[in-house]
Amino acid sequence: MPVRRLLILTGAIVLVDTMFFAALTPLLPHYVDELHLGKSGAGVLQSMYPAGALVAGIPSGMAATRLGVKPTVLIGLSLMAFTTVAFGLADSVLTLDLARFLQGVSSAFSWTGALAWLVAAAPAGQRGRLIGSAFGAAIAGALFGPVLGAVASFTGTAAAFGAVAGLAIVLAAGAAVTPPAARGRPQPISMLFEAILRDGRIQTGVWLCLLPALCFGTLSVLAPLRLSDLGWGAAAVGATYLVSAALEAAWAPVLGRISDRRGRLPPLRAALAASALVAVLLPWPHRALLLAFFVVCAGFAFGSFWTPAMSLVTDAAEERGLDYGYAFALVNIAWAPGQAGGAAIGGALASATSDAVAYLGLAAACLCTLAALSRYRDTAAPVAADR
């Protein structure tokens, strides 16, 4: 089937998924006040979604390789519709955490199936551009997510999140009538474990997916709470993330083209340097507007990892003959503990010490990775992009 049609479908799926994920950010101060969560409790709530994605990472890859990418997408979208409604109606910490966890499970199936479907149909020289375009749509979802959260803070979560569930149902119907991808021979799960244990390029790509997730997880807890402490409400916090996501969404396809032409490592080195710098700056502002500016810069820097890092993983998977379903399962397995660890550990560390300790730890991790990557040579030249 035409790659453009698959790109539109994939983009729509990841847009709706990330819209719900990002909707929680401006609602965190509300849940902290209403349910007396504190920073550590807020971190746990934020970590439930990636925890679900981690648990479902390998099963989603197995489903993609054995059932096919289309059934994997349908499983994810169906579960998304159910869990989004459940989260909107939840009125206790336990039900919120459980609904958020199951939404992470649905996300793993949706992302693994949709991206594997897209990349399998993509010409090799356009892989970075297509991943970047799909990720740009995902970031657009992150752009609308805080707006959805801000609206939910005024209208109530049931109505706002019910609308997201309706979108998931529409997308499931669209995926159901889309011609399925050609099925390859199912691969044993041992191939996935062999790849992550023995392939240095895949290990590097997985770490470079985990690290920005760690950064974003920490930022998603500490930044909205600090902005709230400085006097900003849910709408202003949502506007901050709106600006950040708009810049990321516009940049992702451009970054994909750069990685197709220049290789995956140059943009990754730039992302590491920029992320270290902004992490050093984040703890210190005492004015909400200046902090909001740094949050926007952080989102841009952290978001610059995804496209080249995922392209690096898929390039290595293709060289090994590893199914793309397993490749994106590895991305989920990398992202999930990073996002969960950043949210839970970052929130707990900041609560026990200060925000500065959490942010400076991220800066140190970025600098150490940059030093290691400076000695790393990509084993393959960038593929000439198709024009």
Rank of each mutant, 00 (worst) to 15 (best):
L9M: 12
M1L: 02
A223F: 11
P283V: 11
L77S: 01
K39C: 01
L197K: 13
A223K: 05
G238Y: 08
F82C: 13
L210W: 10
G76T: 03
G149I: 13
A343P: 07
I131Y: 03
L148V: 11
A137K: 14
W251V: 07
A317S: 15
S106D: 13
A12M: 14
N332V: 03
A223V: 15
L362N: 02
P266N: 02
A371N: 00
P253K: 10
D229A: 14
H36W: 05
A137H: 06
F154A: 14
L349Y: 08
W111V: 13
A350H: 06
P224I: 03
L37W: 07
G341M: 10
R264W: 13
R261K: 12
T240K: 08
L291N: 05
L210C: 15
T204D: 05
L272M: 01
A344M: 13
L28V: 08
E318Q: 03
D323E: 09
L37H: 06
Y359A: 02
A137D: 06
A239R: 02
W306I: 12
R320H: 00
L148K: 04
W335H: 14
R198H: 15
P382M: 06
L96V: 09
V73K: 11
A150T: 14
L360I: 08
V85A: 00
P186V: 11
L24S: 10
P2G: 02
Y376P: 00
A327R: 10
A363C: 00
V3H: 04
L9S: 03
G205D: 07
